[in-house]
Write a protein that binds this DNA or RNA. Sequence first.
DNA 1: GTCTATACCGAGATAGAC
DNA 2: GTCTATCTCGGTATAGAC
Lengths: 187, 187
Amino acid sequence: MAKVYSEKRSRLVSAAVDLAYQNGFGATSLAEIAREAEVPLGNVFYYFKTKDEIGEAIVERRLEQLSAQRQRWAEAGSPKNRLCACVQGVFANKDYLAQSGCAVGTFCSELHKAGGSVAARATEIFAEHLAWIESQFWALGKGSDSRGLAVHLLSALQGVSVLAHAFHDPALVVTETDRLKSWIQSL
Amino acid sequence: MAKVYSEKRSRLVSAAVDLAYQNGFGATSLAEIAREAEVPLGNVFYYFKTKDEIGEAIVERRLEQLSAQRQRWAEAGSPKNRLCACVQGVFANKDYLAQSGCAVGTFCSELHKAGGSVAARATEIFAEHLAWIESQFWALGKGSDSRGLAVHLLSALQGVSVLAHAFHDPALVVTETDRLKSWIQSL
DNA sequence: GTCTATACCGAGATAGAC
DNA sequence: GTCTATCTCGGTATAGAC
């Protein structure tokens, strides 16, 4: 499925993913990406015609990562446990969240303000994630409430990421994910 | 309390607030702000030594706005009604949220990635807001749980703003604020 | 395919006339 | 205090040698 790209291109994408996450996509220059990936600046344009194309590559990479995570969560026995595994994934990420926020949420927010075609593509990451969460609630027998419950859960996770980022405090993630896990078990 | 500034300075701040909200602070140029405020570009530097100072002015403006809102919410009779008034404020804002996300959340996220001294100041907006929400839960008799409940409520509001922004869908705000108002009344 | 050199533009910021 | 003209730097992107 995932296309095979050259080693250098892969390094460039990895560098772009990291730098855009830490400093923002707009604030990250091609020169920085090239340096981090140990590729000469001019060479970048052999792999990507524009900076926007790098943005798209970042989205693809994130989609792959999330897809892999969902496969792991799916291994949990019950829908409740799968949802808890998802919440646990956020918990495990708490230190990064406190430092740079949610990789998907902050990226989406930035791109949608900047405008351009990558924004819509970035939203697909959320769409896939939301659909997966909804399907778990559905399996739990929540029927037509499933969508609203999925929005509620993903909202809580996104929101606490925003707060943890603003306060640089992983403890907020700890208490909120605890609360959410209890809530899931109580359903 | 609030210092009195010149008419032109005020126009510049208003323009900066709007443009930074719509397009992001980093992506907004001083030339755009000057044009929107109908002030010559060179003149901007009479009022602000650097672009960072404009960022600080944006924060001050937001702090004033939120403070005014809280005074209105405080007029509601009970703590529960005050919290609902706060949630209702988000609801009333749903179309802007769907277009550009939460003004405070997106601004904070961006500034914390960019680094610099304004970021910490921007976090104070959240800190004040969170403290106010916590005080309402305290008045409700929630004691030491108040902090966690405040984080939970503000997280939900921030999170749904992120999702509504990503999907450009105000309906998400409608369903989630409904859910939160019911939750508050059930406490 | 890979890399160097550089074009070109728009950004923030400054100088100084009025 | 106000505005025009301009400087400088760093950004994306390109041209073309190897």
